[in-house]
């Protein structure tokens, strides 16, 4: 009995000590998108660095912005966001520069992602702020049975041969951008008023050529199959390609010669982080083949380490950037989408 009491006491004290140790462990707070930090990945990091990691998931750029600006709650150490958003966070003074020496795994990345100057949003004033992690291009998905040769231009979306056999994504920003590319405009993210007016007319023409505009990926897949669509603007990129193939469609993926829009999600360290070393260890860890390799396998997303079938090394990629006037683009797009005729702009 006395022995039991003693062992109980020892146990309690042991527990308390353990709790103390657990409390004493460093906590890394991560703000990420679903699929970027799966529990097994997090656990392995915790084991290796003897820290505790708290991951908060967000499902939209707005939610991410709101979390970063939350007055209450924990201060995050690292976040994942696309290049356009990174520029916004940098402008708001929410990021801390990174030390390339602490990120040896960046040397494993494809040349495309190591050419930092070519990707707006990674560097600011000559210092590294964001490290590419995963990306998705917005190419053209086409029915291989209706195309003997893969389409090579964005302008195929306007081709009257495919009238009502085209699907487009319901989004003002991207539609203006890729129409600008198709129209040979060099700066699709910074349109002049005149360019915009011209693109409105082209988008009305596109509206008349498409069957409809989709929003959800599964909606796009269903429309594609049910209406024997010839080609679609693949807003969800290779993920959408996979789901179409799973649904039985014989589809191909084309990167137009004008270039392809793409989002690129990067890891960055917050200005509020009190553990810069640990934060950068996390970012470096994310670029390990075993971790980055999970992106294609589990999420159908491309990583920055290995070349993907859909994006050839020489292909022209336009990483998303903040557009000149998103609200105006959206307002114009709403009119186009609603069916306003050319004369009402």
């Amino acid at each position: 009995m006395a022995f039991n009491k003693n062992s109980l006491l020892t146990g309690i004290i042991g527990c308390l000590l353990c709790c103390q140790l657990a409390v004493a462990k460093d906590v890394l707070r991560v703000l990420a998108w679903p699929g970027y930090a799966d529990p097994d990945v997090v656990h392995a990091f915790e084991q290796r660095f003897q820290v505790s990691v708290e991951v908060t998931f967000v499902d939209s750029d707005e939610a991410l912005w709101a979390k970063m600006h939350a007055v209450a709650g924990p201060r995050f150490d690292v976040l994942a966001a696309n290049t356009a958003e990174m520029q916004r966070y940098f402008a708001a003074g929410l990021l801390k520069p990174l030390d390339p020496a602490l990120l040896p795994n960046t040397r494993r990345q494809l040349p495309r992602f190591r050419n930092l100057a070519a990707i707006p949003g990674l560097q600011q004033q000559g210092r590294l702020y964001a490290v590419p992690f995963t990306y998705s291009t917005m190419g053209i998905i086409y029915d291989r049975r209706q195309f003997a040769v893969p389409p090579d231009s964005m302008n195929v979306l306007w081709d009257p041969r495919y009238r009502h056999k085209v699907l487009d994504f319901n989004s003002g920003q991207h539609n203006f951008s890729f129409t600008a590319l198709a129209s040979g405009i060099a700066q699709p993210f910074a349109l002049s008023a005149a360019q915009r007016d011209r693109l409105v007319q082209r988008l009305i023409a596109l509206r008349r050529n498409v069957l409809t505009f989709y929003s959800l990926p599964e909606e796009g897949t269903e429309l594609f199959i049910r209406h024997k669509i010839a080609l679609m603007f693949g807003n969800y990129g290779t993920q959408q390609l996979n789901s179409l193939r799973q649904a039985g469609a014989d589809v191909g993926y084309a990167i137009p010669r004008e270039g392809v829009l793409a989002w690129l999600d990067c890891w960055a360290m917050t200005a509020a982080s009190s553990k810069p070393r640990l934060a950068q260890q996390w970012i470096n860890y994310m670029l390990e083949p075993a971790v980055s390799g999970l992106l294609p396998a589990r999420q159908g997303l491309a990583n920055t380490l290995s070349a993907s079938d859909e994006l050839k090394p020489g292909a022209k990629v336009l990483w998303l950037q903040p557009v000149e006037n998103a609200a105006l683009r959206e307002a114009l797009w709403q009119k186009i989408y609603s069916g306003d005729r050319p004369g009402s702009f």
């Binding site: 509206r207 005729r341 009402s344």
Partner: peptide
């Protein structure tokens, strides 16, 4: 392109006829 021919909307609880240049092309809606 699916131009509206006759259109009456409810506007602020009242009925409002939409006509002329305000009629829209709806052919791309499912």
């Amino acid at each position: 392109n699916g131009l509206e021919l006759v259109r009456v909307d409810s506007a602020g609880g009242l009925t409002l006829r939409v006509d002329g240049q305000d009629l829209q092309e709806k052919g791309h809606f499912p």
